[in-house]
Amino acid sequence: MRKEFYDMKVRFIGVLIVTTTLFFVVAPFQRFTISMLEGYSGNPQIEKFLPGAMLNKLKEWDFYINSQWYGKNFGQMVGIIGIIMAFPLFAREFENETIMFLLVRKPRKWIYFNKLFTGAVATSIVMLVGSILPAIYSAVAGKEYNYPVVPKFMVQSIFGALLWYCVGVFFSVLFSDQVKPLLASLGLLALTTTAGLIKALKFLNTFPYQLGVSIFEKDSVDFWYTLGIIVVCVVITWIGYLVFERKEV
């Protein structure tokens, strides 16, 4: 476990820094954003995408931070963070041939699940930090904030990231260099998002879940989608394990 954390230390800290920096690019600039958007009022092109009512809602801290953080900046990164945390897990060991060092010391099952769980924990920590930042900032800055919404966004962020983390792990096991799993995972993310534009395949687009659309609309976690993600994660993880167990090194 310690070795795996050590291996992903740079990625983990890097992603945390990017997430935190991004938050501080969004959170303190509510007034600036609104004044900038108000400057465009009267412009029919802008009015089309940002009606006056929306502008007024952005003046509320709750709506501003939830929409701009969970519903935009952080929410869009959730799947990509999952992929970034996953893609080198196995592929780097294959590429550098260090997998032999592990295989002569530990059973394949131990190696697979140890790597998988360590990465999953690290990914969840990043999601937890990213999800809790609005609450911390609101408390420190003395803003009035609807705190009960945080755990709901947290759940959707964590499971949204874990889904793409599992996909990344699967490709990491499948390929023997680090570029292919990254490209394959990002390609699949793009493909499912595009396919989700078709009404019958709407469920393939994971972005509405990651961005917390159900929380904005119904103030509740999308239970069935979460359950679906858990099932898909278990299936992908198991297939990944079977591939790893049979993989020639």
């Binding site: 310690r2 070795k3 050590y6 550098n96 041939e97 260090t98 060092f101 002569v104 010391r105 530990k106």
Partner: peptide, 26 residues
Amino acid sequence: MPDGKELYGSYTEEKMVKVSKELTER
């Protein structure tokens, strides 16, 4: 000990020994 003796290039020797302890029985 396999033919290809690949170790973790980013570790120091000390770290490599510690990781080996974590992974190796007895």
